[in-house]
Simulated assay, not measured.
Amino acid sequence: MIDFAVQRIRSFLPRAGAVLLGLAVAVSLSACGDDSSGGSGMQGPTVEQSISSQSVTSDQGTVDVADLNNVFSGENLSFQVSSSASDVVSASTDGSTLTIDPQNGGSAAVSATASNDAGSAQTSFDVEVTLPDAPGAPNGQ
């Protein structure tokens, strides 16, 4: 009877080891942070505040509009900006600071995008660029 029990245990051990190994691998992978948000456990960026519309004159020079770290939330963010009409206003970033540079009179929409390994988020605002008053022109007419 003891020999029979020993043989049963010996035949069971390899299968039990394989089950335990599979369980250990599954636990290990779940601890690595693999998930549906890009595999890193990181959350995608979100827009936390909007950027208000801007009114500038074409001779104003570069204007700092917003710190994009306050506009978006998230980890390891990179930023990109663009203008719908770069002949009216160009947009760029200096670190996390969004700047606009008025060129000519008109209107444009400026978009700001924050990205990380888990995704991206975007917001936009309008810019109205007016031409400066001509020298000697009466104001308000």
Rank of each mutant, 00 (worst) to 15 (best):
G106C: 02
S11N: 12
P138G: 05
L20M: 14
T93M: 06
G74L: 12
N69P: 01
N70S: 10
Q80F: 08
T130W: 02
L68Y: 00
Q43H: 11
V19E: 07
E75V: 08
L13S: 10
E75Q: 15
G140R: 08
R10D: 15
G17H: 10
Q54S: 02
Q103D: 07
S120I: 07
Q60W: 03
S90L: 02
G95A: 06
P135A: 05
T99P: 07
V88F: 07
G140I: 01
G136Y: 04
P138Y: 08
A112Q: 00
S53F: 10
A31C: 04
L98M: 06
A108S: 12
Q122F: 00
D126M: 13
P45M: 05
P132Y: 07
L23Q: 04
L77E: 03
G22C: 08
G33F: 04
T97Q: 04
A18D: 10
L23K: 03
F12V: 03
G74E: 10
M1F: 13
L20R: 14
L13A: 11
S83W: 05
N104K: 00
S107T: 04
T46Y: 06
D101M: 13
S115K: 07
F12S: 14
P14W: 02
D133R: 13
S52W: 00
S58N: 08
S120W: 05
A109S: 15
G136Q: 06
V25K: 01
F125Q: 05
D117N: 10
L20N: 13
T46V: 13
N139H: 09
I51K: 02
D94S: 15
Q54F: 01
P14R: 01
S40A: 15
G95E: 00
A24N: 13
S36G: 09
G22L: 14
A109W: 12
A24K: 06
A134D: 09
A16Y: 02
A118F: 08
F12E: 12
S82E: 05
A112L: 02
P45Q: 05
P14Y: 10
F4M: 15
L131Y: 09
S37C: 06
E128H: 03
G41M: 01
V88M: 06
P135D: 08
A5S: 15
S82F: 07
R15F: 12
D3Q: 11
V25N: 02
C32R: 15
S96F: 02
V129S: 00
T57H: 10
N116Y: 06
